[in-house]
Amino acid sequence: MSTLDPTAAIPGSKTRTGASQRLRGMNRDRLEQAVVAYLFLLPDVLGLLVFVVGPMLLALAISFSDWRLTGAPEFVGLKNYEIILKDPKFGASLGRTILYTLGFVPAVYTLSLGMAVLLTRRGRGNTFFRTIYFMPVAMSMVVAGVMWRFMFDPGNGLINEMLSSVGLPTLQWTGHVQSAMVSVLIVAVWKSVGYFMIILLAGIQDIPADYTEAAAIDGANRWQIFRFIIMPLLRPTSFFVLVILSINSLQAFDQIYVMTRGGPAQATYTLLMYIYEKAFREWNFGYSGAMAVVLFIMVFALTLIQVRFFRSSDVRQ
């Protein structure tokens, strides 16, 4: 990349004199700044080029090829994408991913908002409760998945024991087509809520107390303050949280891999599970790569919204 080469960067001034004159004209400090800057940026920029940008370009190239573990890659144009359109397994796994997202995003948002509001009330032990609710964030999704699988044990797992002790029917949880997705969702929601609670709590605490106090003096009740003061002013934070949640849920993998491997009968087989298995079980890189690009385009659309938002908060600084 030419911008990284200090010598290529010297003609920065807009004068029309010769190169050597420009070099002399540039004061020593500017030269030092440029050299130090390129030096400081070099390792990270190089790393990003080799391990992020390069692989991204390669990912596009792979998606246009037929590439298996054995044998050389072969250019096949849009064939992989054509197969995707006709592949019922792709449609089904995309459908399950969307189902997962439709469960995950509203559940996490509502719960974390509710908990954030709960904790803004000045009460004794707020810090203690915040710590407790936040604890699952410190746990990996893998351990959370393993732990909940234990509690969801269809035989005598803790959850079923508790259900039967209050006279409710027990469930097969991860073992049954109809409850597997719900089980996986419960774990993901349980694990994620604390994180977004903290973000929303920070957002609420940023709202000047004058507004809510003024509304209270005008006779607004708690619900009205929440509905007409807090919610509108929290909109940027809410928006950010919703976008991040959607992006995360399109990429759900760890807990599904650990809890169900996509089963039973593919009830939790999401798009990323399919991509993973196509590439690292069936070693069909081309087709898997094309699906990864499709997933990328979906995530990209969501990220564009987020970046626009990031930029507006950047300008504010």
Partner: peptide, 8 residues
């Protein structure tokens, strides 16, 4: 996203 560049 990391998942896009996983294979390459």
């Amino acid at each position: 996203p990391f998942y896009t560049i996983l294979i390459p």
